[in-house]
Each structure stands twice: as C-alpha cells, then as structure tokens.
C-alpha cells in the first residue's frame, strides 16, 4: 500500500480516534499545552516589553534575547530541565521550555511596536497633559497593537509546531502519535501525525489571519 493511501486509512480508522492514545485526546492535549504556554509567555513578555519600549531602554537586550533564543535548542532545554528538580512536576519541564521558546518573538515584536510609534504623536499626547501611564495605555499600546499581534501569531504557530517535542520527553500532545509511529516502524502513522500537526499549525495561522481581518481596522497590517 502506498504511503498516502496508508496515511488516509490510518487517519479515517475510527479506532485511532478514541481512547487515551487516540487522535481526539492527543489533539486536545496539544491545544491545551499550546494555549497554556502562549498565555504564560504573553503574561511575562508583553508587560516587560511594553514598559521597556515606553521607556526606550533595553533595546539591545530585546533583540539579543531573540538571537540567543534561536541558538539554544528547545529540545536541549527540555532535557536539561527534565534532569533538574523541575523534572518531577509532570508537565513542568515542557511548559517551562516552551514558554522560554515563545518569549523572543513576543518580546521583540512588542518592544519594536512601541518604539516605532510616531514620536510626534507621543509628544502631542504628552503636550495635552497625559501622564506616562496614560501615554503608554491610551496611545502607544493601541498603535503598537498590530506589531504585538504579529508577535503573538508567530509565537502561537511556532508553539503548535514545537509542542511536538514534548513527546520526545514522554509528554502528551500530537507528537506522541509521531513517536509511537517511529517505535512501531509504522510510516503511515508517522506521516498521519505529521499531517495533523501541520494542519493544526496552519489552522492557527488561519484563525489569526481571519481575526486580524475581522478586527478593528487599526489592528491590521502589522509588518514583521
């Protein structure tokens, strides 16, 4: 049987959708893991980046974190965490590794977004007597929103893709279908797992693109 046909049969077999190891459960695990990591990473990165951008400090830091983050393999971080005391908290190492992975695009985009707000607009806001806090929340934040959302979108898509790594360390998610396929030497199952992850990543990209289109006009058109 050819691989595409085998993959299709694997995916459409109802037995593969049910149960603890089934597609439905793994898909839910994957979505929950991604959403939790994205939320935690946003809570950490966005306030820091907004304040730094508002103050105009730490620009080199924001850019360098992004470069260093790319050089450190997420898989290595995950395994290192597994061997530390953090490794005993179940999904802890996976969440920490993925949050660290998601921080750079969020930090960089939010920082650059705030910095790129037209300086004349900021000065005008100051001139009308707005406090620093009001300038940040009522002028800079709304104007930087397209860039911030681009960062969130990048982070979300990369998280969906990278969350597959959790399976290498025994965690849940769609990666488990792939690793189990490798262990069973079942190419259709491996390819089916890959198709599912890629489809989910494209779906998330699509949802963000649609949300940007449906959202208020000034949130559109954020260039990376």
């Amino acid at each position: 049987m050819t691989t595409p046909a085998g993959t299709w049969n694997w995916l459409t077999d109802p037995a593969h959708w049910a149960g603890e190891d089934g597609i439905a459960h793994r898909l839910l695990e994957h979505v929950v893991l991604t959403a939790v990591c994205l939320a935690v990473a946003c809570l950490i990165a966005l306030p820091v980046a907004l304040v730094l951008g508002h103050l105009g400090r730490g620009g080199a830091l924001a850019v360098n974190i992004s470069n260093v983050g790319r050089a450190v393999p997420t898989f290595a971080v995950l395994v290192l965490l597994l061997l530390t005391p953090v490794g005993r908290w179940g999904e802890g190492p996976t969440v920490v590794a993925l949050v660290l992975f998601a921080l750079p695009p969020l930090l960089t985009n939010a920082y650059v977004g705030v910095r790129e707000v037209d300086r004349d607009t900021v000065r005008a806001a100051r001139g009308t007597g707005m406090s620093g806090r009001q300038v940040l929340l009522q002028v800079e934040l709304p104007l930087a929103l397209p860039m911030i959302l681009t960062g969130v979108r990048t982070a979300a898509v990369q998280l969906v893709a990278t969350a597959t790594i959790a399976a290498l360390a025994g965690g849940g998610g769609l990666g488990r279908i792939i690793t189990a396929g490798f262990n069973l030497a079942s190419t259709p199952q491996v390819v089916a797992g890959a198709v599912l992850v890629a489809a989910l990543a494209l779906l998330v990209e699509g949802v963000f693109a649609a949300a940007e289109r449906l959202g208020p006009p000034w949130t559109r058109g954020g260039a990376r």
Binding site: V160, A161, T164, I165, A167, I178, A194, V197, A198, L202
Partner: peptide, 17 residues
C-alpha cells in the same frame, strides 16, 4: 510559508517514506 509551518519533527516524518 506553508513549508515553514510544518513542525521539524513532522517534517522528518513526512520525508520518511
């Protein structure tokens, strides 16, 4: 763009055949 959305682990899997 589509190529880049495919996770690396999945990319290796897709090329396995």
């Amino acid at each position: 763009t589509i190529l880049y959305t495919i996770p690396s682990l999945a990319m290796f899997s897709l090329l396995l055949p």
